[in-house]
Amino acid sequence: MSFKQSSEPSQKPRLQQNRIPLKRLHAELMTKKARHISEDAPEKKENLEDWFSRFPDDILIHIISGLTLKEAARTSVLSSRWKYLWTFTTSLDFDKKVKYMSFPPDYKQSKYISWVNKVLELHRGSRINQFRICFRLDAKHKCNITNWVSTAIAKNVRNFELDLSPGTYDNYYEIPQECYKNLQSGCGLSGIKSLRSLTLCAVNVTGEVVEFFIHNCPLLENLRITQSPDLLSLKVVGSSIPLKCLDIQFCYSIKEIEISAPNLLSFKYIGQDINLHVGSLPQLVDVVFHVTPMVQKMHCIGSIVSYLPQLKTLELDGCNEVFAQFSQREFPKLMNLNISFTAANQETLLGLSFIMKACPFLEKLVLQVNILVDYIQVEKFEIVIILVEAC
Rank of each mutant, 00 (worst) to 15 (best):
C245Q: 12
D138L: 04
V116A: 05
L92D: 10
N222I: 01
Y252E: 12
L232V: 09
K181C: 06
E221H: 07
T146A: 14
L189A: 13
D138P: 02
F331Q: 09
N182C: 13
C245T: 10
R224L: 10
L265A: 07
N129W: 02
P176Q: 10
F326L: 15
W86A: 04
H62A: 09
K155F: 06
F3Q: 13
L372W: 05
D57Q: 06
K45P: 04
P262G: 00
V295R: 12
V384P: 05
L120Q: 03
S228Y: 01
H215A: 12
R132L: 12
P360W: 12
F52H: 07
I192H: 05
L372N: 08
Q377L: 14
S253D: 15
D273G: 07
R329I: 14
I63Q: 06
G318D: 10
D230G: 15
H123A: 00
Q17K: 05
K193H: 12
L314N: 04
G191D: 08
S6Q: 13
S7A: 11
I248H: 03
P9G: 04
R132P: 07
G66S: 07
K244Q: 15
H290R: 10
A27T: 13
G318Q: 09
V366F: 01
E39V: 11
D138Q: 10
P218L: 11
Q328F: 12
V98T: 15
K111P: 04
D170N: 13
S240K: 15
R136Q: 07
D106A: 06
M101C: 04
P176D: 14
A343G: 03
V205M: 12
K118C: 09
L284S: 06
K32C: 13
E178M: 10
P332R: 07
K244I: 01
S240L: 14
V205D: 14
K380V: 03
P360N: 07
S260H: 10
T168H: 01
L223Q: 00
S7L: 01
F354L: 11
S65T: 08
I257P: 01
N275P: 00
L276I: 11
M30A: 00
L122G: 02
R81T: 09
L362R: 08
I133A: 01
F3M: 05
A73R: 05
N144Y: 01
I355Q: 02
P56R: 00
K118A: 10
L22K: 03
D273A: 09
S266E: 14
H62T: 13
V366C: 11
T68W: 01
S228A: 06
E258H: 09
D40P: 03
A73C: 02
A358P: 10
R124E: 13
E382D: 07
P332H: 08
Y375N: 15
L60R: 09
F94H: 03
K96C: 13
L120I: 11
K97P: 00
L198E: 03
S253I: 00
A152T: 05
L349E: 05
Y307F: 08
F212L: 12
H299C: 11
W115R: 09
V288C: 11
C134W: 08
K155H: 15
D58S: 05
S7Y: 08
I128W: 03
N18R: 13
D50S: 12
V384Y: 12
N159K: 08
S80Q: 05
Q17D: 02
C179G: 00
L189T: 15
D40I: 15
V378K: 04
L195Y: 07
R127Y: 03
F323K: 06
I61E: 02
I20A: 03
V295K: 15
N171H: 15
